[in-house]
Design a protein around this nucleic acid. Structure first.
Length: 271
DNA sequence: CTTACCGCCTGTCGGC
DNA sequence: TGCCGACAGGCGGTAA
């Protein structure tokens, strides 16, 4: 489901509902076979731990407590929602964080592509290794992207969706960023010029920033932790617009299965 | 090392 | 109306 802008908004909404400062009372499991089951014995150590920070790294949410970090990926359909009274459980509610204030955070994930893991603050997680640069950080530059793209035969779209290059760009924003950068998704990454690399970096940065500001894109499932939808889908220029006229030139938007996913672009505007 | 493809799950939608 | 296949915002594993 979520790409960087959606995860960022989940993070912001978790902060808004007062997650930071909450003290763990217990972790309740309503389903054993998650993709990466949190160890029950380990979560017992969360008792009395205070949530100091909610962070985002790539598309991962990090709940940082005094001594531990809970790592969460929402996969395609993961979501968190707060409950203050007795929980009215819904289908696919898998895990519940109980806090001493009475607040509960419920993790719901129909497709169960999401994951939850817990590590010591001093530890490391294989999930966070090999992650590339944050696209909104200063280190994400045209120069760096250009250098990384040499010798890469894979299409540009696969290249920018590869989380060990740059993180956070998923299927929607890959198509949207490439349209705005006037670059064809099928072009081999190695054929990117230095100037185009600058343009691509700038377009990725601006689209992600704009999408964050709009609360993300809600195609069907996505909601933040306050239950709010995003509105950036109204600003999609090519995504899911196959056959419809390009907003720039009127030519029909093309689509093709690429990098394992449907990809959209204008053959006239993008080279 | 890179690249293409598969599988993990459930829900929904469109075509017949 | 009902059934069935295709597809959905992600990512790791595997084979070549």
């Amino acid at each position: 489901m979520p790409e960087l802008p959606e995860v960022e908004n989940v993070k912001l909404s978790l902060e808004k509902i007062g997650t930071v400062g909450q003290v763990f009372e217990k972790v309740e499991f309503r389903r054993a076979n998650l993709r990466t089951p949190l160890k029950k014995e380990l979560t017992r150590k969360l008792l009395g731990q205070t949530v100091r920070k909610v962070e985002r790294r790539a598309k991962f949410l990090l709940f940082e407590t005094d001594d531990f970090v809970i790592i969460n990926h929402l996969g395609m359909t993961g979501s968190w929602r707060p409950v203050t009274r007795a929980a009215d459980f819904e289908k696919h509610d898998h895990v519940v964080f109980h806090f001493t204030s009475g607040l509960k955070l419920i993790y719901n994930d129909p497709r169960r592509f999401g994951l939850l893991e817990m590590i010591k603050s001093t530890g490391t997680s294989p999930w966070l290794k090999n992650l590339g640069v944050e696209p909104l950080a200063p280190a994400f530059t045209g120069e760096a992207l250009f250098a990384a793209s040499r010798k890469i035969k894979a299409p540009l779209k696969s290249f920018i969706m590869d989380q060990k290059r740059v993180v956070g760009v998923g299927n929607i924003y890959a198509s949207e960023a490439l349209f705005r950068a006037r670059l064809k998704p099928t072009r081999p990454a190695a054929k990117l010029t230095r100037v185009e690399a600058d343009r691509l970096v700038e377009c990725i940065r601006t689209i992600l920033t704009a999408a964050i500001g709009a609360g993300g894109s809600t195609i069907r499932d996505y909601r933040n932790s306050e239950g709010e939808e995003g509105s950036f889908q109204a600003h999609h220029l090519v995504y899911d617009r196959a056959g419809k006229p390009c907003v720039q030139c009127g030519a029909p938007v093309k689509s093709k299965f690429l990098a394992g996913r449907n990809t959209y672009w204008c053959a006239k505007c993008q080279r």
